[in-house]
Simulated assay, not measured.
Amino acid sequence: MRITDHAAVVTGGASGLGQATARVLAEAGARVTVLDVNEAGATASAETFGGLGLACDVTDPESVAAALAAAAEAHGPARICVNCAGIVAGGRVVGKEGPHDLATFSRVISINLIGTFNVMSQAAAAMAALEPEDEHERGVIVNTGSIAATDGQIGQAAYAASKGGVASLTLPAAREFAKSGIRVMCIAPGLFQTPMFDSLSADIYDALVKRTLHPHRLGRPEEFGRMVRALVENPMMNGSTVRLDGALRLEPK
C-alpha cells in the first residue's frame, strides 16, 4: 500500500519506537496522528513533523473510539495503524516475596495485549468500510511484539506473555480481515535504544549490547520505523511476525 497522502495512526507515539515510526511515516508522505496516554508528549512528538497529537488510553474502548474519530476528522480515515503502546514490568512468577503481583501482571497484559487488540479491532472496523485501492487493499495494521515472546527470560513472565499474545493475534486477524483487504503484521524487535533502557547501569547496558551479534549495538528506533514502512509498502507481507534483532537470542537469564 502506498503511504503518501494516506492517514496513519501510531499508538505510543510520544517516545521510542512509536515516535520514530510516526516520523518515518510522515516523511514518507502520510498524514500522521500520534496517540499516547501522555497527551503533552503526543503533541510534542507530532509537532516535530507537522502531525496531530492526541490523548488516548489504549485500554479504554471509549478513549480509543474518540481518538480515532478525532484523527479521522483531521486527516481522513486511517488506512495505516501501528500499535507501539506498551510497558515493561519485571518479576518472577514466584519471587523472594512470593507469587508475582497479580495487579502488575494484569496491567502489563491490559496495556500490551488488550490495548493492542482494542485499537486493532476498532481501526480494522473503520478500514473495512473504506473503498478498496490497488489489489483490493483497504488498510494495513502493524503491531509490536518482542523477541521475548519466544525467548522470554526469567523475570519476564508478564512481558513475554503479553507479547506472545500479540504475536499470536497476527495470523487469525490477518485471515479474518483478508476478505476486507486489510493486512496484519507483527514486528518482534530485539534490544532497541528506547526510554526503557535509560535507567540501566553501564555494566548491564554493555552486557546487553554484547548479545546482539551484528550490528554489534542496540537497534535504533528509526530502524523499527523503516521496517514498518517496508511492511506497509509490500503487499505480500501479511499474517507473520518479523524479528528485528541483529541475530540476538536471549539466554534464560
Rank of each mutant, 00 (worst) to 15 (best):
L54M: 10
Q19K: 08
T33H: 07
T43M: 15
A14R: 10
V32I: 15
R23V: 10
A67G: 04
V94Q: 14
A28R: 01
T33V: 10
G50T: 06
V58D: 05
G76R: 01
E39C: 06
G91R: 09
S45Y: 10
A20G: 01
S15L: 12
V88Y: 09
L25P: 05
G53Y: 08
A66D: 14
A26V: 01
D60M: 13
V24H: 13
E62H: 04
E47H: 15
V34A: 15
G51I: 03
L54W: 03
A46S: 10
R31I: 01
A26L: 01
P61S: 09
A46E: 03
N38H: 14
A71D: 11
A28M: 08
V64H: 04
A14M: 11
A55W: 09
E39L: 11
G53K: 12
V64Q: 07
V94G: 12
G18F: 13
L52H: 01
R92F: 14
C81Q: 07
A20E: 03
V64T: 09
V64C: 12
I80H: 00
A14N: 12
L52Q: 04
T48Y: 04
R79H: 00
I80R: 01
A65P: 08
V32F: 04
T11R: 14
T21M: 09
A55T: 11
A85C: 13
L52E: 01
L17D: 04
A69K: 15
C81V: 07
G41Y: 08
A71L: 11
I87Q: 14
E62L: 06
V10P: 05
A78C: 15
E73D: 11
A66M: 13
V24Q: 10
N38L: 01
A69N: 13
E47Y: 08
R23F: 07
L52K: 03
A67C: 06
E27C: 07
L68M: 08
A70E: 15
R23P: 08
E62W: 00
T48L: 05
A20K: 01
S63T: 12
V10Q: 07
V82I: 11
V82Q: 06
A70C: 09
P77V: 13
V32W: 00
N83W: 04
A44C: 09
C81I: 03
A22Q: 02
A14F: 13
T59V: 08
C84D: 11
G91F: 05
A74Y: 07
E73V: 00
L52G: 02
L17F: 12
T33G: 04
A14L: 13
A20M: 08
D60H: 05
E39S: 11
V88W: 05
V10G: 04
S45H: 06
G76E: 02
A89Q: 11
D60K: 05
G53V: 10
R31H: 08
A22K: 01
G12I: 03
V82H: 10
T43A: 15
T11L: 13
E62I: 00
